[in-house]
Amino acid sequence: MIVTLTVHPSLDRTVSLGAPLRVGEVQTASGAREDAGGKGINVARVIRAAGVDSLAVLPLDPTDPFAAVLADADVSVRPVPVAGRARANITVTDAAGETTKINLPGVALSDDDLVALIDTVVAAARGADWLVLAGSLAPGLAPDAYVQVIRAVRDRLRAEAPRIAVDTSGPALRAVVRDARPDLIKPNDDELADLLGAPLPEAADLAEAVHVAARGLVPEAVGSALVTLGGDGAVLVTGEGAWAAAPPPTRVRSTVGAGDSSLAGYLLAASRGAEPAAALVSAIRYGSAAAALDGTQAPRESDLPTADIPVRALTR
């Protein structure tokens, strides 16, 4: 079982254009779709599509139309009642794979809402393999909200507490790394630089620079780091070593949710006992598959690229 928490869910509206986006002009879309989104929900959908149990915890107003879209998403959910509608995220993609995003604000959560979410997460996470805290924090929550979740899970569940992965950015990520020592973080390269408060160091290539930067965190502050690099692949840094891999040739349709699918692919492999390099390959395959799909669809095994994905070890 893999449990996810999404405190800032979204209705993802994706509009596809047959030509590049022309700002200030009227264009006709070639297609459109709506998906229940939010990083934790995306991860849970991918996990479930792989035939592994997942459960998504999220705040949800029972009258919110988002509930109907979520019901069609084939994901098990445990909603925590709140007042207000989930935000909408608008994504415009064109035939060249360029993605433009507009993210709207969501429901503001209170301290009482956070307490209810924490209680629900603790109950859901007992005995799970992983707990994933993913996405931006909802308005109204303090930057240490994820720290509060992690402490509650570990304090109350103790030996039954799952490993904890965090995929967020900015002050929320800095608070987690400073105060909660997660088992895994999944920033991209820009988020890693922001976390460290400095540009990535000079190195032979991006993967090497990410490795050097992440070594300032792993294993002292976090157990491991999976750093996604978009079209350049990903880097995995653990206490035992570091590895880099690049994606196979991919016709990119939408990059929305690709990082979430990468995280899901890694967790699927890690929960099955895969070696780190194999788990990194799984992350690459799932991220590439998601980028080749429209909207924020959850890739299935049949969508995964079959091309060989070489992995290289990185050394200090």
Score class of each variant (00 low, 15 high):
D113M: 09
T14M: 00
Y266Q: 02
T315Q: 14
L304T: 05
A234M: 03
D35C: 06
G40R: 07
G140L: 06
A29K: 10
G18K: 14
G259N: 02
A290V: 05
A234P: 09
P199C: 07
D294F: 13
L195F: 07
A56S: 08
D144H: 14
A214V: 00
S110Q: 00
D189C: 11
D232E: 15
I90C: 12
L314A: 08
L114G: 02
D35H: 13
E208T: 15
V23N: 10
R272W: 04
N89C: 14
A32Q: 15
E191D: 06
A152Y: 12
R178N: 12
A246G: 14
G84S: 01
D232C: 03
I309L: 13
A96R: 14
P139S: 03
A207R: 05
I2K: 07
P143K: 10
E191F: 05
V252M: 04
V311F: 02
A165W: 03
A277P: 13
L226D: 11
V75M: 05
R48N: 10
E160P: 06
R33W: 12
G259T: 03
G197C: 03
P171G: 01
V252E: 02
D144A: 09
T63F: 06
Y266I: 08
I185C: 01
E191H: 06
A264S: 13
Y266E: 03
T250A: 02
V149H: 07
L131D: 10
S10K: 02
A138V: 00
A96G: 14
A145Y: 00
E34V: 13
G51E: 05
Y286E: 04
A258G: 08
N42P: 11
V252Y: 00
L200D: 05
V252Q: 04
L55Y: 05
L141D: 02
G239W: 13
I47Q: 10
L117Y: 06
S271E: 15
A313L: 11
V23W: 15
V235F: 11
L263F: 09
S16R: 15
F66P: 08
A278H: 12
A50D: 13
G257F: 03
V218I: 08
L114N: 03
T100R: 11
T238N: 11
V227K: 08
D155V: 13
R251Q: 15
P199R: 07
T168F: 00
G273S: 03
A214N: 04
A29N: 07
V69F: 10
Q297A: 15
T91L: 01
P171Q: 09
G223D: 09
E25Q: 15
R158Q: 15
G295E: 04
A50Y: 12
R78Y: 07
W130Q: 05
D183Y: 13
Y266T: 04
D144E: 14
E208L: 11
R48G: 13
P276Q: 11
T120Y: 10
R85F: 14
A142N: 09
L196Q: 06
K101T: 01
I309A: 05
A161M: 12
L137F: 02
R178D: 15
D74F: 13
P65M: 02
N89H: 09
R126F: 06
A175P: 04
E275D: 14
S261T: 13
R251D: 14
I309E: 06
